[in-house]
Nucleic acid binder design. Structure first.
Lengths: 227, 227
DNA sequence: TTTGTAGAAAATATCGATTTTTTGCCGTTG
DNA sequence: CAACGGCAAAAAATCGATATTTTCTACAAA
């Protein structure tokens, strides 16, 4: 009898996840130097697995590695943010259209389920960032494109969403003020479930443009400065 | 006075490049186990930097890491190949169109230059894979999309091209027979330089479809088996 | 024959220490 | 005063050894 088969990870992989989360949630400042001797003890791990984790993140573009000068958190810039928004629009719309073409009832069910959970969640105003909401919101967006048929397209979209959300969180933390959310998600759901490709694409495009504009403005006003 | 500023790399980064090349050129069999104790001495490097290199490649998707079971060369499959071709078509055409919109004279010059070098190169029939031609061919394709305006789109295209070329080389090595090349590149250049977006897109699409079809057929016939 | 298990062997993952390189500082020089 | 070295401190990168986990094999039991 085989045991539950819980995914076994290595220490380096654990740390890699934690570091990725810390970067994506703005807990590590963009451009910050990642001194091995400092953060090693912080994450309770030795040099070798720590470097391994950082190399992995470098491969994903979340950290930069410079010659013999160690690692830094990936930089942010207005130009890069606009690139993220532009590519996210192109690819996420493409993936939504493909999903509307190919999606089955499972796809529909997952959209409805994740949208329901997102709708029912009460955002706490206590912290600037509500991690549960972040998860639900991400899951919802990914559910929309979950039937696009291309693993790569899905992965690209997931990565772009991560990066966009990183910018949003950084902007929110920098201004110490909640983002204005445009809850037009429901309209996208309706169009998607009705298989109205044109309308759904239009609404998703608008949604990304609108939220993108909000982050661009917040980001432009004040350059990020977070712990 | 500053010195030439030759990019300084770390040992792990060097090995990472070599490993990437060995994977992309089919010198490492897809799915092959990468035993640390074996390949460490092979690349003349210790455990820690070797693991670091492998973790970086895992981040890029060139190797897979399984729990506590080490690293393997990324697998290949017909489904994955088709995904590569589909996404390559979508994104490379998109990038070409954007380049035609935004490209300046520098862009034109680089296309002409790289196409010239590619045209003049005599393929050696000695080895199945002519590494110089591979480089020139890649440079040419990248030059076409070099003015697309989006660093990410360019990076995605470059990665997809790498993966497609990997499949082509693996198929060629498996059949021990040169690929049939469709030299329609010149027609794409003409259309691009004339800023004829529709024609250029059409021709690029055809070119990718045609070469893709060739690799699919070769790949389908015989599953890869290379050193 | 299949199943299960214990132990040995092999391979992976991690730690601690050493080596190498960069960085910061300070006096010197043109 | 700026530029240039050279020293010392700090940080990065690597090595070698150890600890941990998996894999393999043999053998016993159902």
């Amino acid at each position: 009898m085989k045991l539950p088969d819980i995914e076994i990870r290595t220490g380096a992989q654990d740390v890699q996840r934690k570091l990725a989360a810390d970067i994506l949630f703005g807990r590590l400042r963009p451009g910050a130097k990642l001194k091995l001797a400092e953060i090693g003890p912080l994450y309770a791990i030795g040099m070798s697995p720590l470097r391994e984790a950082l190399a992995g993140l470098a491969g994903q573009g979340l950290v930069m590695q410079e010659g013999q000068r160690g690692f830094r958190v990936a930089d942010v810039s207005l130009a890069d943010l606009m690139d993220v928004i532009a590519m996210r629009t192109r690819l996420e719309v493409m993936a939504l259209e493909a999903s509307i073409d190919c999606g089955d009832v499972e796809w529909e069910a997952r959209i409805i389920a994740s949208f329901h959970k997102l709708s029912r969640h009460k955002r706490t105003q206590e912290h600037l960032i509500d991690e549960t909401w972040e998860d639900l919101h991400r899951s919802f967006h990914l559910s929309l494109i979950g039937a696009c048929g291309s693993p790569r397209l899905f992965t690209y979209c997931a990565g772009l969403l991560s990066q966009f959300d990183r910018y949003r969180r950084i902007a929110v933390l920098a201004r110490a003020q909640h983002a204005i959310l445009t809850p037009m998600d429901g309209k996208i759901v309706d169009a998607a479930l009705e298989r109205d490709k044109v309308t759904a694409a239009l609404r998703l495009r608008d949604h990304i443009a609108e939220s993108g504009q909000g982050v661009v403005e917040m980001f432009g006003e004040r350059m990020p400065r977070c712990a």
